[in-house]
Amino acid sequence: MESRTQIEETAARWVARRDRKDLSQADEQELAAWLQASIAHRVAFIRLDSMWREANRLKALGAGVGVGVVPAPGEWQRSPFLGKKAPQGRPVTVQTASGKPRNRPVVRLRVLAASVLVGAIAVGTAWMMKSAGPAYQTHVGSIEGVTLADGSRVLLNTDSKIRVEISATERRIQLNRGEAFFDVAKDPTRPFVVVAGEQRVVAVGTKFSVRRFEHRSDEVQVVVTEGRVRMEPPTSAVKLPPVTVAAGNIARGSGAGVLLDAQPERPVDEYLTWRTGFLMFRATPLAEAAAEFNRYNATKIVIDDAAVGAVRIGGNFRSDNVEVFVRLVERSFPVRVERHGERIVLTAN
C-alpha cells in the first residue's frame, strides 16, 4: 500500500506540474486518472492545491521590496501589512514613565513589575472599605459564572474574587484577586470599569479578561476578544495617557506603565482556554506550566531545578488533571517525580 508521504509527494508534484500551466492533454488525463484511483489521492491533492493557492497571499510581502531581490528571512517584516517586529519576534510597545514609547521585548516587563508604588496600597485599601456592593469569589480549582444586575456576565477563574458596585453613572468591578472574563452589556451611559490594583480597565460593550498575579501584585494582564477597552494607568505623580487595547490584543499594566502586545504570537482565545477547563501550552517553560497548574489545584508542583524548569512543553491539558500532566512529563523527559503529601517535586533524573 502507498504510504501517506508517498501520496503527498505525488500530489505535490502534480500541483507543481500543473503550476507550469503547460499540461498536455495526456498529462491532464494522467492526473485525472490518478485522482480517480483513490480518495486518499484526492484529499491529498485538494489539500496541497489549496495550500499553493493560499500562498498567493505571500504577494503582500513584496511591498517595498525591489524586483529581483529575495529578502532574507524576517526582512519582509518591514511590510506595512505586518507592522514592525520586535527583536524577539513580537511587536510590543512600552510606555515608560517619561511618556516616550519604545520598542522592547516582553522580558522587559519583569523589570517594570518590580517597581511598586507603596503609596497606592493605602489608597486601594481605603476604596475597598467604602465599597458596599456584592462580592463573589471562587475557590482553588473552581470556575463560576455570575450575571450582574446590568446584564453583564462575569466568569471567575480559580481562586478569584471580585466586588461589584453598580451606580447610575458607573459600573465598577474591583478585581481583588485572580482572573475574570467579562462579557459586558452595552450601556454607553455607564462605563464598565474593572479596577485591579492601581490599574483601571474601562469598557463600554465588549469582551475581555483581567488577571492579577499572586506574586506580582501591581501587575495586571488584559486580554480583549471583542471590541476595545481603555487602560487607565494609576493616578500617580507622573501623568501617563490611557492606552487603548483592541480585540486580539494583550496588554500588561504595572505601576510603571502599560505594555501592549498588538500581535500576540498566539490567538487571544488560547490565553482564555481556562473558560472551558483547559490549559494550553506551546513551547512553554515547564516552570511556567507548573505555576499555571498550581493556580487550579491544591496539589502543588514544585520544581527546584532550573534546568528542569526550563524544559519547554506543549499541549492541552485539563486544568484539574495535574496527575496526568506530571505522568506525561515524567515519561517524556529525564525528570524524577517524588510525592510529598500535597507537593509533587520534580528534579532532574
Binding site: 513551547a283 506543549g314 499541549g315 506525561l328 517524556s332
Partner: peptide, 12 residues
C-alpha cells in the same frame, strides 16, 4: 512535535 500534546514535546 511543535504543537506538542500527549507526549509533551520539548523544543528549543
Amino acid at each position: 512535535d511543535d504543537i506538542g500534546g500527549a507526549t509533551a514535546a520539548a523544543r528549543t
